[in-house]
Computed example of a mutant assay.
Amino acid sequence: MDTPATTGFASFREFYPYYLGEHSNRTCRRLHFVGSSGALICLLLAVSTFNPLWLVAGLMCGYGFAWVGHFVFEKNRPATFKHPLYSFMGDWVMYRDLLTGRIPF
């Protein structure tokens, strides 16, 4: 679990600028958006079909697109490896910020 002792960040508010710095490449951000959108679709399919395999597909979609963005375009390691909870939260805040135009898509 992400705590100040393990992350070096006192709060998510403090972490989020770091998270955005790890997503400075526009293609990486776009891949995150596509992966997160696919994960949401898989979640809806899991709920509507009562098939939990869609949850696995959602994780693969979300993380797969994001990791391609990091390793191929951003040329860094995903923050998930060091800060799993804050990174998961950051994914959805960045998703909202991309959707609302706060961050360039």
Score class of each variant (00 low, 15 high):
57 A>E: 03
63 Y>A: 09
54 W>R: 12
65 F>Q: 03
67 W>T: 06
81 F>V: 12
58 G>F: 09
56 V>R: 03
47 V>W: 14
72 V>C: 12
63 Y>P: 01
70 H>V: 04
66 A>L: 10
67 W>G: 06
65 F>M: 08
47 V>C: 07
62 G>Q: 06
71 F>Q: 10
83 H>I: 07
49 T>I: 03
52 P>R: 02
54 W>T: 05
83 H>E: 10
51 N>K: 05
59 L>K: 01
75 K>W: 08
60 M>D: 00
62 G>R: 05
49 T>K: 07
64 G>Y: 01
81 F>M: 13
50 F>V: 01
56 V>S: 13
50 F>L: 14
73 F>R: 07
78 P>G: 13
83 H>D: 07
67 W>R: 11
63 Y>T: 01
70 H>S: 08
72 V>T: 12
73 F>E: 02
58 G>I: 04
62 G>E: 03
52 P>G: 02
78 P>I: 04
76 N>V: 04
71 F>K: 11
56 V>Y: 11
58 G>Q: 02
57 A>C: 13
82 K>Y: 10
64 G>H: 07
71 F>P: 01
69 G>Q: 06
83 H>V: 00
62 G>C: 08
72 V>W: 14
66 A>E: 12
82 K>H: 14
79 A>L: 10
72 V>G: 08
61 C>Y: 01
76 N>M: 03
82 K>V: 00
66 A>P: 04
59 L>N: 04
51 N>D: 10
53 L>N: 06
75 K>Y: 01
80 T>M: 15
79 A>I: 00
53 L>V: 04
54 W>D: 06
63 Y>D: 11
60 M>N: 02
61 C>K: 01
72 V>P: 11
70 H>W: 09
66 A>I: 03
48 S>V: 00
55 L>T: 03
60 M>C: 14
51 N>A: 04
62 G>K: 06
67 W>V: 06
71 F>E: 07
66 A>M: 11
51 N>H: 01
68 V>I: 14
47 V>A: 13
47 V>N: 00
49 T>W: 08
48 S>G: 09
69 G>H: 02
78 P>W: 09
60 M>P: 00
53 L>Y: 13
64 G>S: 06
82 K>C: 09
75 K>N: 13
